[in-house]
Simulated scan of single mutants.
Amino acid sequence: MIIKVLLPFIAATFVYSGFVSAEMRQSKPTTSPSKPAVPKVVQPKWKVFTPPDKSFQVLMPGRPKKKTQVQKTYMGEIKLEIFVAQPPEQEVAYLVTYNEFPYSYAKMTNPQKILNQAQDNSLKATQSNLISERNIRSSNGHPGKEIQYVDSAGKVTTNRMYVAEGRLYQVMAIVSKKQRPTLAKTITGYLNSFQLVLRK
Score class of each variant (00 low, 15 high):
A153N: 14
R160Y: 06
P143M: 09
A184R: 15
T186M: 08
E133V: 14
G166F: 01
P143I: 07
L191D: 00
I131A: 11
T186F: 05
T158E: 04
T188W: 01
K178Y: 15
N159I: 02
R167V: 03
N129F: 13
A153P: 03
L183T: 07
E146Y: 05
T186D: 10
N159E: 09
N159L: 04
K155G: 06
Y162Q: 02
T182H: 12
Y190Q: 00
G141N: 13
T158M: 05
V156M: 10
N140A: 08
M161W: 02
T188I: 04
H142G: 01
L183Q: 11
S176G: 14
V156P: 08
S138W: 01
V156I: 14
Y149P: 07
E146W: 03
D151L: 08
Y162D: 04
P181S: 10
P181E: 09
K200E: 12
R167I: 01
K185F: 05
S128M: 12
E133I: 11
Y162I: 00
E133M: 12
K178M: 14
L198A: 13
M161T: 00
S132M: 10
R199A: 13
A184G: 07
G154D: 07
S128A: 15
R180Q: 15
P143C: 12
R160I: 00
T157E: 11
L198N: 08
G141W: 07
K145Y: 06
G141C: 11
S138Y: 00
Y162F: 15
N159K: 03
T157P: 07
N192F: 01
K200Y: 05
L168Y: 10
L196C: 03
K145V: 04
D151F: 12
K155Q: 12
K200R: 10
L130M: 10
K185E: 13
M172V: 06
V197A: 06
R160N: 08
N135L: 09
K177L: 12
S128F: 09
H142Y: 15
R167Q: 10
V150N: 13
R160H: 15
Q195K: 14
Y190L: 01
A164K: 06
G189H: 12
L191W: 01
Y190F: 12
S152D: 15
Y190C: 04
T158W: 02
T182P: 08
I147M: 06
K155W: 14
I187H: 09
L183D: 09
L191F: 04
I147D: 03
Y169H: 04
M161E: 00
L198T: 10
K200C: 08
T188D: 12
P181R: 10
V150A: 12
D151S: 09
E133G: 11
L168H: 09
G166R: 04
E133H: 14
S176W: 11
V156H: 11
S152Q: 15
M172K: 08
E146F: 02
R199Y: 10
R160L: 05
A184W: 10
V163M: 00
K155L: 11
S176D: 11
T158C: 05
R137Y: 07
I174V: 13
K177Q: 11
K200I: 05
K177C: 04
V175Q: 11
R167G: 02
L198H: 05
G141R: 09
E146N: 08
E165W: 03
Q148K: 15
K145C: 02
S138I: 01
Q195Y: 03
R134Q: 15
Q170I: 01
A153W: 10
L168Q: 08
T158N: 06
V150D: 07
K177N: 11
